[in-house]
Every structure is written in C-alpha cells, then in structure tokens.
Amino acid sequence: MKFLSAVIISSILFNFAYSQNTTGRRLDAGLTNSPSGLDIATEKKKRSDGEEDLSESDSGVQRPIALKSGGFSANFAYNSDLTYQDNPYAVDGGELDFASALWTNSFTSSFGLGIIDMGDSVLTPYVGGSWTTNEYTSAFVDATPNQKGVFNSQSFNSTNAFVALLSQYGNGWSYSGVISYNMTKLTIDETEALRDFTYTLKALKSFSIDDSQIIFDASFNIHSTDGDSQGDYNGRDEMDRFDIASSLKLIREIGPINIAPKYTIQYSDYANGANDDRTQFLHNLALNLNYQITDSFNLEFNTAYTINDSSGSDDDDDYEMFDAGAGIKLSARF
C-alpha cells in the first residue's frame, strides 16, 4: 500500500429554485454531499516540508514527531467562495432561467471523539456542524432589476449538524455511517424552507497509480424531509427520497497545485405525493484546483457541470447547470 499525502477538499454546491408563480421552490436539486465538517476532519494535508528529496537508508529516515496523548481532535474551517451559476434555480427554461453569482461563507467545525483500535480496523466517531450563508448576487452577470429582486428573495442560510462513525481498514477500504440534519432558511423573511434528515451509508476506497490517487465511493442516502408547503410541493414530505450515488475522483499534484477531477452519478427515487412516481439520474462532472499556501490557508477553484434527467413527476424536473468559482479556505486542527 502506498500512501500519498493529498489535500481533499470537498465543495458543497447547493442549488435551489424558486418560482414566483405556481412552480414554487426547488430545494432538492443537486448532489447529496457529505457534511462539510466531516470532510475537513478527514482531509489529508499535502506534504509541505519538502520531503520529495528523500535520502534513503536501510532503516529509513527517523524524524521525531509530536502526538496528541488522546484520540480527541477538533477541526475548524472558514470558507468563502464566489461562484458563477448559469442556472442557479435548477430549471428547464422559463422565467427563472437566468444566471447568477452565489457568494457563500461557511463556518465549519467538527470533533473527533476518539480512536478505537479494533485490530483489523480503526473506528473514529465524529460530531460537528456548519453554518453557511448563501447570497445570490449580480457579480459577473448582467441582471435586470426583476432578477436582482429574485436574488434577494432567494438568498438563504443553511445549518448542518451531524454525527458520524468512520471505520478505516488496512486494505484501504473505509465505511461510514452518518446522520445529518440540514435546515434551510430564507434570509429575506427568516422563513424555514426545508428540514432534511439524511441517513447515509458510504463505502470508499482509495488507490495509488503512479503519482496519482484515485478515490472511488458509493453511498446510499435516505432523506426524510419537511418542506415549505407553499413551494413546489403540496405536501411537506414530498421531497422524501432515497439516493444511490457513486463517484470516481482523481487527485494529482502538479507542482504546488492539486488537481482533482471528479465524476458523480446519483439515482434518486421519491416517495410521496406528487413525486410518488418520480425518479431521476443526476450526472455531475466537477474539477477542483487547490493551492495550499500554508498548512492553514488554501486557495481553490471549482467548476462543475450537472445534468439532471428526471421522469415520473408532473413538473419538468430536468435541468442542466454550469458552475465556476473560486474561494479561500482557512482551517485549523487541534
């Protein structure tokens, strides 16, 4: 088994739709992503101490390190991203089909509660959460006054809390179970638009090929939702669904930059009300470029293209969207 130190940054892209007429608000668009707090707890830092020129010896280089006495850890991060979205409300034409920029500020924390050695695996429980502001703006786009009004009405804050249990095996496979609570609130009137309890089981395996790292994962998610009855859906639980998703990610270091293209496919099956017969396949192709300036400060660039192919519902839930943005990340680990 070879081990590469790499930075794994996970961008959370939430795409929401709102109609001023009858179609309501689309709060279920996009990928089901793992909680950002879990991502910062499990990301691996890039080697920053010039170990590329290793002098070898039979017994190896013996460099002293300082270790924590217990298994408790704390991780904090602040992200600020500005992203151009050509279809921020996830629609297929119509009056909401216009571009926007989204400015996201996210405060994330997570805590590792211990390290449990099971012999052939290591268990690590985590708890954490995040609070994110999402403001639609007219940066990068030419918006009409009406469209700017939509930006204001659609900006939202989201809150996440999670508990997770990770199990890492020596053969490279890891398994996790996560219970995540997400709440979305519109900033214009502080109304709660969505509550979503997501239950996730995920398997992940990483491989090393040459100087690249390849990460494969597969997950099963159940969403138990409570949504705004004035929106797209008549019933508060019409966004209840399960997802089956799988992704393949390549991470490669080129100089000081990590380049990570990723492809995700997600199948969703809805359960209730008007969405009873609805199923969809979502394809997402994303690229992340990450430049680690210091151990705690990263610059990143993200771009993604999403295609949603839906069937079985009264509304046209197909959409395509393109996103591109950049941001900074400050992080600390204790």
């Binding site: 017994s59 190896g60 013996q62």
Partner: peptide, 8 residues
C-alpha cells in the same frame, strides 16, 4: 517518512 525512505 520512515516507510518511504527505508530500503528494508
């Protein structure tokens, strides 16, 4: 680091 640099 030890594993990466050890000839053994």
């Amino acid at each position: 680091l030890l594993l990466q640099s050890s000839r053994l």
